[in-house]
Computed example of a mutant assay.
Amino acid sequence: MWIFGWKGQSGFSARSTAEEVTEGIDAAGLTAIVTGATSGIGVDTTRVLALRGAHVVMAVRNVEAGKKLKESILKEIPSAKIDVIQLELSSMASVRKFATEYIDSCLPLNILINNAGIMAPPFSLSPDGIELQFATNHVGHFLLTHLLLDTMKKTARESNREGRIVIVSSDGHKFAYSEGIRFDKINNEAEYNCYRAYGQSKVANILHAKELARRLKEEGVNIMANSLHPGEIATNLGRNNGLLNAISNSFIKYLLKTSSQGAATQIYVALHPQVKGVSGEFFKNSNISETGTAPAQDEELAKQLWDFSMKLINT
């Protein structure tokens, strides 16, 4: 149970905060993108990356909220380097616009943290006609990673520093449909279950990281890709679901992780020297963990998802 703070091999536990897992780490000279930077654990991820010296690009839906967070962080950390660029992950046009703007800026890219997500909303389709959770949690991040990969490869090559792609999944992947990914029923409203569809998108996050890691290793590229479960956190992730929103605002919130504890694992995977050379793994509480379900470990399903996703983003 997380509240007991049992430490894993890394020396950290579920109670560790983002500040604690990065203590003594100098991220100066690194440039990182954080999606969903103005909400939940994205806020602490952005702040601690800046605190450790990284140049952080906040990829956010609400630019005004991004600017306010930037101002807040600069008051605390006057030396922080932060930029704000608009990104709506559910729209492939927006993802392409963001990527073009980023590439045109000529900034390097050492770390990509695919943090943003939505959870268990009523059935709806994205602007591209894809079930909203799958579109936002997986397809948007898949496309973003695809478009920025050459920039990351160039940065890793020229800087001689390992690049890291961090994909935020969830233990919620265990509640996915039995097939893991329902390729032929992604947009089937009649059989839609908001919780299982969320789980499906989280399985996709894990499989994306695994297949990307395999391909990068095969190519001999110095970029690592990993996925993670941040923990049960008191955030507004369930804002689109009345039941989840009520639970997260009840007494149960006192049993959940704080935002800083929730951000710890992705910050650990993004920055810690212990993760150097580690790729294709699933992390929990700042330690490598088993996913625990067959679909999330299925290499053939990962390859099938890759091909399916490529077709989606190329249409």
Rank of each mutant, 00 (worst) to 15 (best):
M1L: 13
W2S: 14
G5S: 10
G5L: 10
S10Y: 04
G11I: 04
G11V: 03
A14H: 04
T17E: 05
D26P: 10
T31H: 02
G40M: 09
I41C: 12
V56E: 00
V57G: 01
N62A: 10
V63S: 09
A65F: 06
G66S: 11
I73R: 03
E76N: 07
P78F: 09
S90E: 15
V95S: 02
R96A: 08
K97Y: 04
K97E: 15
A99N: 01
E101F: 06
I103M: 09
D104W: 11
S105Y: 08
S105I: 13
C106Y: 00
P108W: 05
N110V: 08
I118Q: 06
M119V: 06
S124A: 15
P127T: 07
P127W: 05
E131D: 07
A135N: 07
F142M: 10
L148R: 00
T151V: 15
A156V: 08
R157T: 14
E158M: 13
E158G: 06
S159H: 10
E162K: 08
R164Y: 03
D171I: 15
D171Q: 12
D171W: 08
Y177A: 11
S178G: 00
E179L: 10
I181P: 01
R182Y: 05
D184Q: 11
K185C: 08
N187L: 09
N187T: 09
E189A: 14
G199Y: 00
S201H: 10
K202H: 10
V203D: 01
I206Y: 03
H208R: 05
A209S: 12
R214P: 00
E218G: 06
N222E: 06
N222Y: 04
M224Y: 00
N226K: 00
N226Q: 02
S227I: 08
L228C: 04
H229T: 04
G231S: 09
L243R: 11
I247H: 03
L255E: 07
G262R: 04
Q266C: 07
A270V: 05
G277I: 14
F283E: 02
F283C: 04
N285E: 13
S286D: 07
G292V: 11
T293Y: 03
P295K: 04
Q297Y: 03
K303F: 14
L305S: 05
D307L: 13
T315N: 15
